[in-house]
Simulated scan of single mutants.
Amino acid sequence: MVKTPCMASELQMKLKDTIHGCIPLDEKGDFKELTLLGEKYKGKALCDQFDLISRRAYFNREHPETRNKDRDYMWYLWSGAYSPLFGKKKMATFERYFLNDKEVQREESNMYYKLRDDKDSCCRILTEFGLDPEVSHIVNGHVPVKVGKGESPVKAEGKLFVIDGGMSKPYQKVTGIAGYTLIYDSYSLILAEHTSFESKHKAIHDEVDIVSTRSMIEHATKRIRVGDTYIGANLRQQILDLNRLLDAYRKGVVKVKSVG
Rank of each mutant, 00 (worst) to 15 (best):
F59E: 14
C122F: 07
C123P: 00
G29K: 09
F50I: 01
I23R: 08
K28C: 11
K44M: 03
S121A: 15
S121K: 15
L85Y: 12
N68E: 14
F98S: 05
Q105P: 04
D70S: 12
E108H: 12
D132I: 04
R55Q: 08
A57W: 05
L131D: 07
F86S: 05
N110W: 02
K14A: 07
R71W: 08
L99G: 00
M13C: 11
T127C: 00
G80D: 10
T35E: 15
K89A: 10
L25S: 13
R56F: 09
D17T: 02
L85V: 03
Y73D: 10
Y113C: 01
G80V: 04
G43I: 07
W75A: 10
S121F: 14
A57R: 07
K32W: 08
L37C: 08
D48M: 00
K119F: 01
K88I: 01
E27W: 05
D118Y: 02
D72G: 11
T127N: 11
D30P: 10
D101H: 10
D118I: 04
L11T: 15
K40N: 14
I53M: 04
T127P: 00
Y58R: 07
H20R: 09
F86Y: 11
C122D: 06
D118H: 09
E107L: 05
G38L: 03
D101T: 05
D132V: 06
K89M: 08
K16G: 13
K102W: 01
K119G: 00
K90C: 12
P84N: 07
V104T: 15
T93D: 14
Y97N: 13
K14R: 13
S109M: 09
E10Y: 13
L77G: 10
K69T: 11
D120C: 04
Y58N: 06
D132C: 13
Q12K: 13
T35K: 14
L115T: 10
E107D: 07
T66S: 14
K102N: 01
G29V: 09
D132K: 07
N60M: 07
W75R: 12
S54L: 01
E134K: 13
I19K: 07
G21Q: 04
E65D: 10
N110Y: 03
E39Y: 02
E107G: 09
L85C: 13
Q49K: 15
E134Q: 13
A81H: 06
M111I: 06
Y113S: 03
M74P: 04
L77N: 10
I125M: 09
